[in-house]
Write a protein that binds this DNA or RNA. Sequence first.
DNA 1: TAATTTTCTTAACCTACATCAAGTGCCGCC
DNA 2: GGCGGCACTTGATGTAGGTTAAGAAAATTA
Lengths: 194, 194
Amino acid sequence: MPLNLILNNLEKHIHLTREEQETFTAYLQPKKVKRKQFLLTYGEVCKYSAFVTSGCLRGYTVDKSGIEHVLSFAPADWWIADMYSLISQKPGIQNIEALEDTDVLLLSKANQEKLYTQIPKFEHFFRILTENSLVASQQRLIDSLSLTAEERYNNFCKRYPTLIDHLPQKQIASYIGVTPEFFSRMKAEMVRKR
Amino acid sequence: MPLNLILNNLEKHIHLTREEQETFTAYLQPKKVKRKQFLLTYGEVCKYSAFVTSGCLRGYTVDKSGIEHVLSFAPADWWIADMYSLISQKPGIQNIEALEDTDVLLLSKANQEKLYTQIPKFEHFFRILTENSLVASQQRLIDSLSLTAEERYNNFCKRYPTLIDHLPQKQIASYIGVTPEFFSRMKAEMVRKR
DNA sequence: TAATTTTCTTAACCTACATCAAGTGCCGCC
DNA sequence: GGCGGCACTTGATGTAGGTTAAGAAAATTA
C-alpha cells in the first residue's frame, strides 16, 4: 500500500518522527472499492475517514424526489467522509461511491481519536483539514446563492482541471446543481457564444 | 465583561483549570458594536474570532449585482468570523454587522495560536467547533440544492426559533436565499393555505 | 409629534432552469 | 460482434422565483 502519499499529505501541515509515522500507519486499513461500488450508503453510520490513494470517489445525497446531489469528489490525495454521521455517529445522509476502481486507506473514528490523545499533532492536522473544508463549503454555498450555472461551471473548471475530462458530465452537472439536460444545452450555448 | 457565558461555552467540550481560565480570559478583548456598525468589512483582513455575549451580529457577502447574502447570524453565545480571511490572512469577503447593539469578546488570531500551543485543549475545542460549522454549512448547501424556499423557511424556523420574531424579515429572506418580495408573497401564501 | 427612512406588501411581467419526451451515439458485456 | 443499456442531445412546454414599480405600514430620528 502506497503510504508515501498519505505521509506526504500529512507533511503539508505537521511533521512526524519515524516512530510517529509507524504508529499512524499501523492504524490504517487498506481497502479496494470497485467502480460503482459503495464505501458508504445512506442510513449507515459512518465509522471511517477515507484517504484516496488512487481512483476517484464521489459523495452525494438523494433528495425526496430522487435527484442526486454530488457533495464532493475525492480523487487521489483527498480525504472523504460523511462528516455529519462521523461526528454524531447517527445514520448518515450520504452515499460514497467509486467512479472508477479505487484504493483507499481507512482510519476508524476510534483510531482517529486515539491519535488525538497519543499524538496531539493530529488534532492540529485535522483541525486545519476541517477548517479548509469549511471554507470550501462556505464558498460553494455563496456560489450557489449568487452565481449562474455557467459561472459555477467555470469555477469548477478552474478548481478541478484534472477532473473535468475523465468525469461523466452528468456528475459535473449534479455538482454544479443543474440537470444533465440543462448542462448539455448550456455547454452548447457556451461554444456558440465564443 | 460577562466571562461566565464564554467559559460555559468552552465547558461544552473541554474542562479548564482555574489557572487555564485566567490565561484564556487574559487573551480576550471586550468590544461594543452599535447597531448598524461593522465589526469587519469587505476587503479587510480578519484578525479576530468574535464571541457574542449580548445582541446579534450578521455575516454577509455582497454579490456583483449588489445583492446581500446572509451567511450566518450570531446571537449571544455564538462565535463568528470570516473564516476564509482568518485562515489565509487575505482580504475578506464578508461584512460582519450588528443588527442591534452588541457586546463581543475578541480573540486575536495570534492569541488563538498561542492557546493552541500553551493549552492543547483549545486545539481540541476549536476542532470540534469547526467540525460542527462544517456540518451545518454542508447541510445548508444540501438544503439550498434540494429544498424549496418554503421548506428552507420551515427549517429556519425550527433551527432558530428565538431569532424569528426579533429579526427583520428581509434578513430571513436573505438567509434562506430569496428576495424580500418573494418572501412576503410566500408567507401570505402559507397563511392562505392552512 | 412630525418628518424621514426603512420595511413590508401587492401586482404585472420576466427569466433561468426544470420537466417530459424522443432520438442518437457509444461503451461494456455475453 | 451484436445488443442492451446508459450518457448525451435537442425540442416543446412548465414553473419557482426574480424584477420593477408603487403604495402602505412601521420604526427611527428630529
